[in-house]
Amino acid sequence: MAATTLRSVTTYDLKLAAPLALGFLVFFVTPLVILLALSFQADPQGSRYGLTQYVHFLADRFSLGVLGSTLWLGVKVTALTLLLGYPVAWLHQRAPGWGKGVIMLLVLLPLLTSVVVRTFAWVVILGRQGIINAALGGLGLIDAPLKLLYTDSGVVMALAQVQMPLMVLPLITALSRIDPNLADASSVLGAGHWRTFRKVTLPLSLPGIIAGCLLTYAAAITAFITQSLIGGGQMLFMPMYIYQQASTLQNWPFAAAISIIFLAAVLVVVSVFTVLGRLSRGYTNA
C-alpha cells in the first residue's frame, strides 16, 4: 500500500504522452505509410501497383551511382571528422577551465549557426576569388586559381566542418568517463604515450566514437544544403535526387521509392552502429 502511494507521487501518468503520440501517429507515421504505399504505384496515376519503381531504380546505373556516391560521401566525411574531432575532444579533456570554455564555444557555434550561413562561408573560402586561392596565389605557389568549389574534396571538407560538433560532443562525454588512473597505470607499467593511447584511451572511448560516427554519418548523407551549394550542379546526391524527382519532375511514385530506399539505407546504418554501440559498451564495462 505504502509502496503504491509513493510510486504514484513519483511517477506521472503515461496518458500525458497521448497528445504527442496521437500527433506523431497522424502527422509522422501516417505520412511515412503513405510514402511507402505510393512507392508501389507503377505510374503517377496509380492505375497499377507493383515493384516497378524499385526495379527501375535498381536496374538504373545512374540511380545506383547516386546512392553509392552518397553512402561513400558519408564514409569520407565521417572518417575525416573522426580524425580531426578526436584530438579536439582530447585537448578539451586536458585544457584548464577557460580553455574548456573556449573549445566548447568553438564546437557549439557551428551546431547552432544556420546551415546556410555555414555553407555560404565555405563558398567564400573555396571560391575562385576565395581565401585559399588568394593565399596560394599570394605566396606564388599557383599561377591560376584552383578549382575547389564544386569538387568532391570541397564537399567533404565543408561537410566535415559542418558536422564536426556531432562527433566531438559524444567524444568529450566518452573521454570524461574514462578513469584517469588507467592511463597513469599504463604509463607506470612502462607503456609510452602512443601505446597507452592505442591500448587504453582509444578502446575505452569506443562508445563515444560509435555514437559520434552514427550522428555524423546520418547528418552528412542527408545534408541537402551543403551538398548542393558546395557540390554544385554536377554532383548529385540522394536528397537532391529525391527533391528533383518530386518537385521538378513531379514523379511522386519514383520519388517515394527513392526516399524509401534512402530511408532503408539510413536505417541499416543506424542499426549497425547501434549494435556496435551495445557491443562496445559491453566491452568497456567488462
Partner: peptide, 27 residues
C-alpha cells in the same frame, strides 16, 4: 614518445579548431 604524441594531438586539435572557427570569422 611523449613529445611526439602531444605535438601530433595538439597540432591536429588546433587545426580542427581553426577549421571550426574559420567560416564564422570569414563571413
Amino acid at each position: 614518445d611523449a613529445l611526439s604524441f602531444r605535438v601530433v594531438m595538439t597540432g591536429i586539435a588546433l587545426l580542427a579548431l581553426v577549421l571550426l572557427a574559420a567560416p564564422t570569422v570569414v563571413v
